[in-house]
Computed example of a mutant assay.
Amino acid sequence: MAPWSAAVDGRDAVFSYVPEVGAQPRIQPHAWRGRSVLVPVAAVPGLAAAVEAVLESTATAKVGGLDRWSRARVDRITECVYFDGPVLAGGRNGHTPVRTLFVAVADLRGLRLRLTAYLAAPGLA
């Protein structure tokens, strides 16, 4: 799950990110409230594991959300992956790195499927 940790706060999943020491801001997660999240390529497997951990711990998260998340888009310059979808909160704007992402538990299944698809075939994104 590293560099991510996960928790559930009511109806929201909270994902916390701990960047490597000295990591540049451009290769840290970014979030645009209600629109999308950008995740460093190297951090995608950890986010997938964190999402899976939340899904395993919450019975209500087993259905829904797929239509709310886009397929992964890779930015080869920044080495980050974009997922358009219903991120509940992030930084002031997407250009500021964030260490915490909030996603409704009901939308996690869709995010998990998009993360899994990306990890299965990263060259196709």
Score class of each variant (00 low, 15 high):
H30S: 08
S57M: 00
L47W: 08
A43D: 10
H30A: 13
R112Q: 15
V18I: 14
A48H: 09
V41G: 05
A43G: 04
L38F: 02
G22V: 03
G10S: 08
A61E: 02
G64D: 10
R99F: 10
P40K: 06
A43S: 14
F102T: 10
V39D: 01
D107T: 13
W32R: 11
V41L: 15
R35S: 11
S36C: 13
A89T: 11
T78F: 10
G90Y: 04
T60K: 13
A31F: 01
L108K: 08
V51D: 07
V37A: 07
E20H: 14
R33Y: 01
L113H: 06
V41M: 14
S70H: 14
A72M: 04
E20S: 15
T100H: 07
A106E: 12
R68V: 00
V81H: 03
V18R: 15
V18W: 08
W69D: 01
V54K: 00
A53C: 04
G90K: 07
A49M: 12
S57F: 00
A104C: 09
I27H: 11
L101G: 06
S57Q: 07
T96A: 12
L55S: 04
A50I: 09
L55I: 10
P45Y: 06
A117K: 13
G110Y: 07
V44E: 02
R99W: 08
V44T: 04
G90W: 07
L38G: 01
L38S: 05
Y17G: 05
L47Y: 07
G94T: 12
V51C: 14
R76E: 11
G64K: 08
A42E: 15
S36Y: 12
R33W: 01
V74D: 06
Y82R: 15
D75Y: 05
V41I: 15
D9Y: 02
V14L: 13
D75V: 02
C80I: 01
V54E: 00
P25Y: 07
D107R: 05
L55G: 04
E52Q: 11
P45H: 05
L88Q: 09
C80L: 03
V81Q: 10
T58P: 00
R114I: 06
G22C: 08
G85L: 02
L111T: 08
S57E: 02
P86A: 10
V98L: 06
V105W: 03
P25M: 09
T96G: 03
A117G: 12
V37E: 00
R99L: 12
G46R: 07
L108E: 09
A13L: 05
V44N: 04
D12A: 12
G22Y: 07
G65S: 03
Y17H: 10
S36K: 14
E20N: 13
P25K: 05
A23Y: 08
I77R: 11
T116M: 03
A42F: 13
V81C: 10
V18Y: 09
A61M: 02
W69T: 03
A53I: 06
R109P: 04
A42L: 12
Q24C: 00
G34Y: 11
A49D: 12
A59F: 03
R33I: 03
V8S: 00
A106P: 02
Y82A: 14
T58L: 05
E20T: 13
T60S: 15
D107F: 04
D107C: 11
A53R: 12
F83E: 04
Y17T: 02
A72W: 01
A23M: 14
R71N: 10
D9R: 11
V18H: 12
W69R: 02
D84A: 07
V39Y: 01
V81N: 05
P40N: 09
A59L: 11
G85H: 03
